[in-house]
Design a binder for these strands. Structure first.
Length: 594
DNA sequence: TCATAATCCTAA
DNA sequence: TGAGTTAGGATTATGA
């Protein structure tokens, strides 16, 4: 799951909730013995818990069609299925290389760990972003499979790379070699056709075939298999470049990878120049085109026209014209129009995504808080709602009011705790961190409380920021949300306002609103009276939200007291035979209270 | 106070 | 003993 999906938690419970809308029948480890030693009813609960823990992974495998996709990937790359789970990306490329080399009666050297002499090389160009809110359509031009097509176009491979001495010694004619922008020399395919380009060609034609078959397919199962296949082929093609640049891998060749990126850099610059030189009033166009941004294989163009349809036509014209200036498989495509388009900075933007002139397909956001997993839901939702109001509803006053309401709710402690939970990945063991960080320090503290449930390396750590002495560092104020609930610890709304909400919101509003800061963050709504501890009713609200079954909800509202929660739940289990909605958080709270 | 390094996560 | 790449923004800790 961690490899294929980006989620904010990878616990079986939360993954199941996300994909299956089903949850575990959770049992806290501390009560397992008690349940086993209890009566038939408690053992039943334990058994249901065990069964469900086996059943959920099975359902996930089915739902996400892991088996089909893995079989297809194994076929394409020639590795055993177990490698797809236990090993990385590079074994797949190596396997394809070995298969091809055997066909051609070539051997692959067993290279020793070359040491860290070279290591890094220059990557892609990211064009300077002309930040702003664009209310005219922006056309996007993209290179299709940029790096694979470069490797094919210029025959880049281990077996086509030659040194300057080779060129002299073998008296290679200049028309039979290519010198790459990074200064390497590769022979053309008439002298020695590269293995990598050949692999890539096969992968990409196979993908085209799979996509064509997918279009024809009627049966949902067949469709799923074909979609898995075309995806496997795409991923395989894209990882070939990475393989050549992996200096810790089996067969690094930075001459290839740095040549690929150098061609890519040349091509994006060339594209920008061509667009801006051709689409001018001088040449009979209505406006001068401007490239406002671009990253690696794409350029965003403002042609100056005001309708989506005109922008699409110009985009197609430009893509065709520019494609004609590149050799064989390299192709620039017109893909989509953004309208309106909010460009915040490099790698950060939002806009409505149009592929046809009549209506937009979706709201698309890149890099900003809505797509990041390390922000609390409050920020994520707030930014998303504002973008929705600004881009789709075109209601800026409405967006402003929404922010004010949220800030006011936060400062009055009306915010659900689950919206304030920040999560960050634990990437190494505590000792290996050089500076103190909120999630790392909390993980250590939790380990001291209960080593069994504390987060481990690779886990994501959820935390909230609690009130503390002025000037205390964030890492001193991070706390486990469950611990906060059970001990009635007050959170720090000011932290959430100043360190979580304020900057992301300002970045969204600043291109749109003058005095954004004054209007949004310093109005009367920021002077709400703050109640410092969450009330019982706050906890009850949280608990109710966690419960999905009507029986439990009804029960909770009747009991109405936190201390009675666990008793209520036990009664419910006794009556119904099981806890049908399995509220993990709630159970934990209940157990602690007990 | 401020520049810089560490860290996380994303775009491509 | 196995590991795909670089670019880049944002936040926080750290130390001069």
């Amino acid at each position: 799951m961690q490899r294929d999906y980006k989620l904010s938690s990878y616990s079986l419970n939360s993954v199941s909730a996300h994909f299956l809308s089903e949850q575990k029948e959770d049992v806290h480890h501390s009560i397992i013995s008690d349940l086993q030693n209890g009566n038939a009813e408690t053992r039943r609960r334990l058994a249901v818990y065990c069964l469900k823990d086996a059943y959920l992974p099975q359902r996930l495998l089915d739902k996400l069609m892991f088996i089909y996709n893995y079989v297809e990937m194994a076929r394409v790359t020639g590795v055993p299925i177990s490698f797809l789970l236990s090993r990385g990306q590079s074994i797949k490329v190596l396997s394809q290389l070995l298969r091809k080399a055997k066909q051609k009666n070539l051997v692959i050297p067993n290279v020793k760990q070359a040491g860290s002499d070279q290591g890094t090389y220059e990557g892609a160009t990211v064009l300077e972003a002309r930040a702003g809110f664009y209310e005219k359509p922006i056309a996007t031009l993209d290179f299709a499979s940029l790096y694979p097509s470069i490797m094919m176009a210029y025959n880049l491979c281990y077996c086509s790379l030659v040194t300057p001495e080779d060129v002299r010694r073998l008296n290679l004619p200049p028309e039979s070699v290519n010198k790459t922008p990074s200064g390497e020399t590769f022979v053309k395919s008439n002298l020695q056709k590269g293995i990598l380009p050949e692999i890539l060609e096969e992968l990409l034609t196979a993908r085209k075939r799979a996509k064509a078959d997918l279009k024809e397919a009627k049966d949902p199962l067949e469709k799923a298999v074909l979609d898995g296949r075309q995806l496997a082929l795409k991923i395989s093609a894209n990882s070939v470049y990475g393989f050549t640049g992996a200096t810790v891998g089996q067969l690094p060749c930075l001459e290839i990878s740095s040549s690929v990126t150098s061609y890519g850099r040349q091509m994006i610059e060339h594209t920008k120049k061509l667009v801006e030189d051709k689409f001018l009033t001088l040449n009979g166009y209505e406006h001068n085109a401007e490239v406002i941004y671009g990253d690696t294989d794409s350029v965003m163009v403002q042609f100056g026209v005001s309708s989506v349809e005109e922008a699409m036509n110009l985009g197609r014209e430009a893509a065709e014209y520019i494609s004609g200036t590149f050799i064989k498989p390299i192709k620039l495509e017109f893909e989509k129009v953004y309208y309106p388009y909010l460009l915040i900075s490099k790698k950060r933007y939002a806009g409505l995504f149009w592929t046809k002139p009549d209506n937009f397909d979706k709201m698309d956001t890149k890099g900003i808080e809505t797509v990041r997993r390390d922000n609390c839901l409050l920020v994520k939702n707030l930014v998303n709602d504002c973008l929705h109001k600004i881009l789709i509803d075109r209601d800026i006053p409405g967006a402003v009011q929404h922010v004010k309401n949220a800030i006011s709710d936060l400062l009055m402690n009306r915010m659900d705790l689950s919206l304030l939970v920040i999560t960050k990945g634990l990437t190494k063991t505590g000792d290996d961190y050089e500076v103190k960080a909120a999630h790392v320090e909390l993980a250590e503290r939790m380990r001291k409380r209960d080593a069994a449930t504390a987060p481990n390396v690779g886990d994501r750590v959820p935390y909230v920021i609690i009130k503390a002495a002025k000037g205390a560092k964030a890492y001193e104020r991070s706390e486990d949300p469950i611990y906060v609930l059970e001990n009635n610890i007050p959170i720090d709304p000011q932290y959430y306002l100043e360190n979580q909400i304020s900057k992301p919101i300002l970045r969204i509003f600043e291109p749109i609103l003058k005095n954004a800061s004054k209007e949004l963050l310093h109005g009367s709504h920021t002077r709400s009276i703050s109640i410092s501890t969450p009330s019982n009713s706050g906890i009850m609200k949280f608990a109710k939200k966690q419960l999905t079954c009507i029986g439990c909800k009804a029960l909770l509202s009747r009991v109405g007291q936190v201390a009675a929660m666990e008793i209520a739940l036990s009664a419910h289990i006794a009556r119904e035979g099981r806890l049908s909605c399995t509220a993990k958080q709630l159970l934990k709270v209940g157990i602690y209270l007990k």
